[in-house]
Write a protein that binds this DNA or RNA. Structure first.
Lengths: 147, 147
DNA sequence: AATCATGTAACATTAGATGTATCATGAATG
DNA sequence: CATTCATGATACATCTAATGTTACATGATT
């Protein structure tokens, strides 16, 4: 399988939406993400179900933020797109009676659990609002930080 | 893509080999792993190239350890099987001029790098010898630990 | 009514691990 | 030396989940 880029893409979109007046169409977002409007709708459906964005049909329709960026963490977005597997490595599912296999799998899963906890904690600690303000500070230049 | 289980499988095999007299055939190993001898040869080729195991053809041939388990870390095995991607999430490869996209990707990659460093450190800190002794202590029962 | 935009379903594509079949090569055995 | 056993290597099939694509239905605006 390819590397899952839904979290990355949705963060990208949400930050743009916050800097954009009025709704954005799936087509415009697809162009931004270099993909297809159907992929956009499919992925953003999760964000809508979670209440982070709204979608409207018809003229002047499209996608708009439904809450403050400070109320959304990276973890929220990760979960809203389906909370996919974080790791590409692991062990076979099947039940086993082999004690060596069990020991090995437990050792690996311990390490993976720890790394996952770290990632989840980091994702949960950062809000999209902080990311957006980081953007202003990092990229908008000295004018933006003058008093 | 499926979850990569080569590390798990090779650890399983190496620990068995240490508890086994004489070489083990790809067929026997494949049965142990519930897979196919060709898959075994393909995966173990990396371990052989790294010098952790030896393979012999013909009657009485098969696979045997080529060094002490204490000289092999989980990280060594991970690298010997190709050092595959650890994470199933990430971002699109393509170059971009969008500063928002760059900021988002850097934020995610920072977190992933940190988690990867944790995993690599843990894998590097555990030798197969320690794992094997952990097995004896955990599963072999009180008889094994008597003086 | 026409247009615009999302919602949805169905199917194609892609990438990488894994599974499988086949034959070549070399070692041990009689 | 022929047979058997085992690895080495190649080619191709399968599986899985994300992603890409086509087509059409639904609802809102003009």
């Amino acid at each position: 399988m390819r590397r899952d880029s839904r979290l990355s893409r949705m963060l990208h979109v949400l930050l743009h939406m916050a800097r954009h007046d009025g709704p954005m169409t799936s087509d415009a977002i697809a162009t931004m993400l270099r993909t297809n409007p159907v992929v956009v709708r499919r992925t953003m459906a999760g964000l809508r179900d979670a209440g982070y964005v709204r979608s409207e049909k018809g003229h002047g329709g499209g996608w708009a933020l439904a809450c403050d960026l400070d109320a959304i963490s990276l973890l929220d977005v990760h979960r809203a797109v389906g909370g996919p597997q974080l790791f590409a490595i692991g062990n076979e599912a099947g039940p086993t009676h082999c004690l060596v296999e069990k020991l090995v799998n437990e050792a690996l899963e311990d390490a993976l659990r720890e790394a996952e906890a770290l990632l989840i904690a980091r994702f949960g600690a950062v809000s999209l609002g902080e990311l957006a303000r980081g953007f202003d500070a990092d990229y908008a230049g000295p004018l933006a930080s003058s008093p």
